[in-house]
């Protein structure tokens, strides 16, 4: 699936890209499908099982699309976190 980018540098991952928008859409539809799918499957309705499988599939696809980007965002951010935390405490202790 070359259309979906799987390798990111932290700087590239910090930007909002199409993969983020795809994740937003997949996530929303997977929630809807999981909600309806579980309920109708428990009632043993065929449509319920189809929707549930769709919901699980969308969730897996969501992970496939967004996980490499989230990993890159996290690894880049963690290097700067200590400095940011010190800044936050300076703002909090405003007397200094």
């Amino acid at each position: 699936m070359a259309w979906i980018r799987r390798h990111w540098t932290p700087e590239e991952a910090d930007e909002w890209q199409k993969e983020d928008w795809i994740a937003i859409i997949l996530s929303t539809f997977s929630y809807i499908a999981l909600t309806i799918g579980v309920a109708l499957s428990l009632l043993m309705l065929a449509v319920g099982f189809i929707v549930l499988i769709l919901g699980i599939g969308l969730s897996v696809l969501l992970f496939f699309v967004i996980d490499p980007k989230l990993k890159a965002v996290s690894s880049g951010y963690e290097k700067k976190q200590k400095e940011y935390l010190e800044g936050l405490e300076r703002v909090q202790r405003w007397e200094e």
């Binding site: 929630y31 909600t35 428990l42 990993k71 951010y77």
Partner: peptide, 25 residues
């Protein structure tokens, strides 16, 4: 991490929605 934060919110809420469906039936 940022990644852990994202997954915690997504997965916790997915479980809430599934739980609601279980109750509904």
């Amino acid at each position: 991490t940022v990644r852990d934060a994202s997954y915690s919110i997504w997965a916790g809420t997915a479980l809430v929605l599934v739980r609601n469906s279980l109750w509904a039936v």
